Simulated assay, not measured.
Amino acid sequence: MKRPCLQSTLRELHLVVKAPRLWATFATVVLVFWVVGPYGTLERLAAVPRLGFWLVLHAATWAIAITSAVLANGLLRERIASGFARMMLGAGVAGVPIGLVTSAMGAATFSVTPTTGDILADIITGFFLSQLFCVLTWMTTNAQAAQQLTDASIVASPLGGDQTPADAVPETEKGRVPLLLRLKPANRGQPLRLTVSDHYTEVTTSAGRELILLRFADALGELGPVPGLQVHRSHWVADAHVARILRENGRIAILLNDGGEVPVSRTYAAAVRQRWG
Rank of each mutant, 00 (worst) to 15 (best):
E202I: 12
T195N: 06
H199C: 05
A217R: 15
Q230L: 07
R233G: 06
E222A: 11
T195S: 13
H241D: 13
A240T: 15
W236S: 08
H241R: 07
L229G: 06
Q230R: 15
A238F: 04
V226K: 10
T204W: 00
L223V: 08
H235A: 04
P225I: 11
L220C: 08
H199S: 13
E202W: 07
G208M: 08
D239G: 10
H235M: 05
L214C: 04
P191S: 13
V196D: 08
T201V: 14
P227W: 12
R215H: 11
L229H: 07
G221Y: 07
P227T: 14
E202A: 10
A238K: 01
A207I: 01
G208P: 07
R209P: 01
A217P: 01
V231C: 08
G208H: 13
E222S: 07
T195P: 01
G224N: 11
L223I: 10
W236G: 05
V226T: 15
E202K: 11
A207D: 02
T204M: 13
T204E: 13
V226M: 07
G224A: 13
H235R: 04
V203K: 03
A219G: 03
L214V: 01
H235V: 04
H241P: 03
S206Y: 00
A207G: 05
G221D: 14
S197V: 12
Y200F: 15
A207V: 06
A238R: 01
R233H: 15
T201P: 06
G208E: 05
L211D: 02
R233E: 10
S197I: 07
E222D: 10
L192I: 08
G224I: 12
E222W: 01
G221P: 02
T195I: 08
R193V: 02
V226Y: 05
L229K: 10
V242K: 02
D218R: 11
F216R: 00
G224F: 12
V237I: 13
D239I: 09
P191D: 13
L211R: 15
D198A: 14
V226I: 10
V242E: 02
L192S: 07
G224S: 12
F216L: 01
P191G: 14
L214R: 00
A219P: 01
A217Q: 14
I212K: 00
